[in-house]
Amino acid sequence: MTGLDSSRAETPVLSVRDLEVAFPTPDGDVQAVRGVSWDVYEGEVLAIAGESGSGKSVSVMAAMGLLPATAQVSGSIAYRGRDVLAMSDKDLERLRGSSISMVFQDPMTSLNPVMAVGAQIAEGVRIHQRVNSRTARSKAVELLDLVGLPNAGQRVDSYPHELSGGMRQRAMIAMAIANDPDLLIADEPTTALDVTIQAQVIDVLERAREATGSALVIITHDLGVVARIAHRILVMYAGRAAETGMADGVFERPSHPYTAGLLGSIPRLDAPKGTRLMPIDGAPPSMLAPPPGCAFAPRCPRATPLCSQEIPELRPIGNQQSACHHGEDQYNEAEDV
C-alpha cells in the first residue's frame, strides 16, 4: 500500500532511495533534502505535499537531472530499475521528454516565447519519434484538442504570450504527454492559476493521465488539490518524509503531528462557521543547520526530549507510515475524535 511496501509485486516506475541533496552557499550547505525514499507505480497518482522549503520540488528535480551542477546529490534514483543518477547526459535527455516528462508551475518560463506552441509540441514529438513534420503537426493539434484547448486547429499557431495562463498550462500538459510518457511530474501545476482555471487544469491532468496511462507525481502545497486528485500522499517537512500513505487514510487519521497540524490550520469550506483555526507555532527550521532530532520537534505539541535527540525513521502505523516518535498517539487521537 505505502511507498516503501515491498509486498507490491510490480516494479515501480520510479524509485527514489535515501535521496540527499545539498546546495553549497557562502553561509554553508543548505540541506534541501535529507534522506527521502519514495516509489511511484504505474497508473497511480502520488502527491508530494509540503510547504515552501520542505524539499518537495528538489527531490523531483534531482530525479529529472535538473538540479544545478553545484548541487550535491547522493542516494539512488531508479527509473524501471535503471539508475538515473549514473546516466550519461544523452541517456538522460532521451529519458526526459519521452519516458518522464514534466509540467511546471509557470508555463511562461518553460515555453519558448518565440515559437508557436504547436511547433514546440511538434518539435518534441520529432525528437523522440520518427515522423515527418506534417504528422507531427497533426499530432500537436490532436494533443491540444485532448487537453481542451478551444479551436486547437487555430491555436496551434499561437505564441505563448497570446494564450491565457490556463491555456498555456494546457499547452504545457499537451507537450508533456506528446511522447506518451510512463511518468508525468507536475510541479505546483495549479498554484499560479485562479480557482476556476485550477479546476480545469486538474481535470486536464487527470484526462491526460488516463489517455497515456502514465503515473503522475504532483507536487503541491495545497492539500485540497491532493484530496481531489491523489491516490497516495507523501508529506514532506524540512527535507524529510513526515508521513506517507493512501490519501484517504492520511487525511482521515493523520499519524504525524505535522500532517494533523496542516489539516487543522486550513480554513475549510465545509467547516462549521466559527471554527477556530489551529496554527502551527513557529516557523520551519533553517536548512543550513537543521535541528539534531526531529525537525518538527521545536513546533510540535507532542515533542518530548527524545524528539530533539533522535531522528525518527519512517515506520508503519496503521495503514500508513509515519516518521514520528509519537505517531501512534497521533493516529489514535484521530480515531477518538
Binding site: V21, F23, V30, S52, S286, L288
Partner: peptide, 10 residues
C-alpha cells in the same frame, strides 16, 4: 528549485 530560496527566507 524553490528550496534554497525558500529555506533561507524561512
Amino acid at each position: 528549485a524553490d528550496a534554497p530560496v525558500g529555506i533561507l527566507a524561512g
